[in-house]
Design a protein around this nucleic acid. Structure first.
Lengths: 204, 204, 204, 204
DNA sequence: GATGAATGAGGTTTCATTCAT
DNA sequence: CATGAATGAAACCTCATTCAT
C-alpha cells in the first residue's frame, strides 16, 4: 500500500506542480513567449521531465486550460446551486467568477483569449465552457422570470452581459483610485442588469 | 514637386498596404503565427521591403494596432457627437464599435487580447484607447443624468458594461440559430443597461 | 539574360554543393551520424541555408540517393547500349558499376544498405533502381542466348549474380595485397558467370 | 552450488533474452531507430536492468553482432565439415548461410551493412568474420581443384562470388512470383559458379 | 539485484533579420 | 529603392544514461 501510493502521490504532485508552473507562465506571458525550459525551472525539475508528463507543449497548454476550467466549472456550479433565491444564487456564482478572474494563482485569464489559432479542439473546449457557464446563468434568470420578478425576455443576452461585465474587475487601471472594489463592482453590475429586466410595478 | 509627391504617395500607399496585410493576418492568426514573409506576400512586395517601412515585427504589430485603433477612435468620436439626444448618440457610438468588432477588414479583435507580454508600451496604448472610449460613453451617460432621465450614479461601471457587452456580437456560437442578429443584440444591451439605471417615475 | 541566369546558376550550384557534401557525409557516416550542421559546414554555407534547398534531413537524404542513382542509371544504360557484341556491352555496363562503387566522389555505397527503416518510399525507389539495373543485364544475357552462345536459362539469377559479385571490388581487405585489381576482378567475375552458363561444345 | 548456479543461470538467461530482443529490433529497425526502452520491454525487463548486463547501447550492439556471428560461424564450420565430396560440403555450408540470411530470428542481415561509422572495432570484427567465412569456402574449392575437377584458379574470387550471390535470397521483390525459391536459387548459384570454373573435358 | 523516474546534452527545424546585388 | 538568398540564434523534443528506492 504505502510504497505504491507514495509513487502515485509523487506523480500526482509532480503533475500538478508542472500544471501550476505552466499556468503561471502561460498566463503571464502567453503561449509562445513561454519556453518549456522556464516551465521546468519554475517547477523545479529538469526539462526532459516535463515530457514524461505531457507529450508536447501544446498538450500541456491544453491540459492547463482543462485543469483550470474544470476546477472553475465545479466551483461555479456549486455556487450557483447554493442560496435561497435566484438573486442569491446569481450573486454566489458571479462571486466565483470574479474570484477566478482575480486570483493570480488561477489561470483564468487564459480563457478570455482567442486560442483558435493554437488548436481547434482547444477552441471548441473553451466555447463549451462558455456555453455551460452561460446556461447556468440563464437558468438562474429564468427562475426569476418564473417567480414573476423579471420580465420574460430571452435570457441569453442578459446572461452573457453579466458574464462579460465581470471582466471589469480586471480593469483596475480604468477606475478612479477609490472607486475600485471588485465586490461592489460585481454587485453594481448585477443590480444594473437585473434592474434592467425587472418587472416594472405595473404601469397603470 | 511632382516626383517627390509621387514618391511620397507611393510610400504612403505601400505603408498602408503593409499595415492592412499585417492587420489581416495578425487578426486571423495572432502575432507569432504570422510570418513576415506571409505579410510581404499578401502585401504584394518583397520580404526585405517590409523592413524599409518598419524596423521590426514588433514595431509593425504596434503600428497596426495604432493605425486601427486611431481610425476606430476617430469614427467612434464622430459617431458619439452626431445625433440629437444622448440615447441616439450612444446608439451611434456603439454601432461603430459593433461594426469594428465584426468587420473582418477591421483588426479590432486584436484589442481584446492582452498584449502586455509582447510590449509594455503597446499595453499602455491600448489601456489609453480603452480609457478614451470609456470616457466618451461616460460623458454620454452623464448627459442623460443631467437631463434627469438616468439616475446620477457613477457612470464608469455602466459605461464599461456597455462596451464589454458589445463583445457579444462576436459570440455567434452561443446564440440560438435564429436569435443572432448583431444590431438587435446591441439594442437589447443598450436597453437593459439604460433601463437598469433609468429614473423610475416612482409612483407615489 | 545575364543576371537571371546567374541567379539560376547560383542556385543550381548551391544545390549541387549541398548534395555533394551531404552525399560525402552520408556515405562515410550514415544517416543518423551525419548532422545537418556538418553538411552545411562542408558545403561552406550556413545551417539555415540547407533548409532553403531541402525541406528536411530525410528529404535531403532521399534527394542525394535519387541524384546519385539517376546519374548512375544514365551512365549504366549508355554503357550497356554501346559495344558490338553482348559480351562487350556487359563489360561496359559492369565497368560503370564498378567505377561507381569505387569512386569516393560517388555516393553509391549508400545503395547497398537497407534504408527501409528510414523511409518506405526511399526503399521502393532503391528496389526500382535494382530492378531496372537487373533488367538491363538480363537483356544483355538474353541476347547471348539468342545468339546461341549461352544456355537458355532464366537470366534473372546470373544477372543478379553479376551485379552482386561486383561488390567484391569494395572488399580490398579480403584480397591478398597483390591480388587486388578491380578491373581484373570484374573480368574474372564475368568470365566465371558467362562460362558457367555457356553452351558446352556439344558433347557427342 | 545450487544457489550460485541458479543465479548464474538466471543471469545467462537474462543475458540471452536481451541479446535476442536487441537482435530482433536492431535487425528490423537498425541501430538508431531502436530504443533501449523497446529492447527492455521486448526482453520483459526494466530499462535499467539492461545496463546491468551491457555497459552501453553500442556495446550491446557489438555483443549482438558477436553473438550472432559466432553462432553462425560455428554452424557454418560444422556444415562445411560434413558431407562426402567438396560439392556436398559447399552445399551444406551455403545452406547454413542462406538459412541465416532468411530466418528473421537470426540477425544476420546486420552483417551486410557497413557499421564502420558506429565502431571501428566492430567493423574489424565483421571483416574477420567475412575473411574466415571466405577462407572456408576457398578451402572447399581448393579441394575440388586438387581433385582435378575445378580449374586451379585463385579461389578467392569464386569463393566471394558464392558468398555474395547468396544475398539473392533476400531479394524476393526482384524475382517473378513463381521463380522465387531460396533453395533452388542457392543451387543455381552453386551450379553456375562451379560450372564456370569446371575443368572442361577439353574435346580434342 | 532490479527498476523506472529524472535528466540534459544534443539534434532538427524555424524564422526574424541582414545585406549584396 | 527593392529584393530574397543567406544566416544563426533559439526553440522544441528525444533518448541514452544515471541513481535513489
Amino acid at each position: 500500500m504505502g510504497k505504491e501510493d507514495l509513487g502515485t502521490d509523487r506523480k500526482r504532485e509532480r503533475y500538478e506542480s508542472i500544471i501550476k508552473a505552466a499556468g503561471e507562465l502561460f498566463t503571464r506571458k502567453g503561449f509562445h513567449e513561454t519556453k518549456m525550459e522556464e516551465i521546468a525551472e519554475l517547477a523545479g525539475i529538469g526539462k526532459g521531465t516535463v515530457y514524461e508528463y505531457f507529450r508536447s507543449k501544446k498538450e500541456l497548454f491544453f491540459d492547463v486550460i482543462k485543469y483550470c476550467t474544470s476546477n472553475f466549472l465545479d466551483d461555479f456550479k456549486s455556487a450557483a446551486a447554493k442560496g435561497k433565491g435566484y438573486r442569491e444564487r446569481l450573486d454566489n456564482a458571479l462571486s466565483v467568477l470574479v474570484r477566478y478572474f482575480r486570483e493570480s494563482s488561477s489561470f483564468f485569464k487564459l480563457m478570455i483569449k482567442d486560442h483558435r489559432h493554437i488548436d481547434e479542439k482547444l477552441y471548441e473546449w473553451l466555447v463549451d465552457v462558455k456555453r455551460t457557464t452561460a446556461k447556468i446563468v440563464q437558468d438562474i434568470l429564468e427562475e426569476g422570470m418564473k417567480a414573476g420578478e423579471l420580465k420574460p425576455v430571452t435570457p441569453v443576452i442578459p446572461a452573457l452581459m453579466l458574464l462579460e461585465s465581470c471582466h471589469l474587475v480586471l480593469f483596475s487601471e480604468l477606475f478612479p483610485e477609490d472607486g475600485y472594489d471588485p465586490e461592489s463592482i460585481k454587485m453594481t453590475v448585477i443590480d444594473i442588469v437585473l434592474n434592467g429586466i425587472r418587472v416594472t410595478s405595473s404601469p397603470e
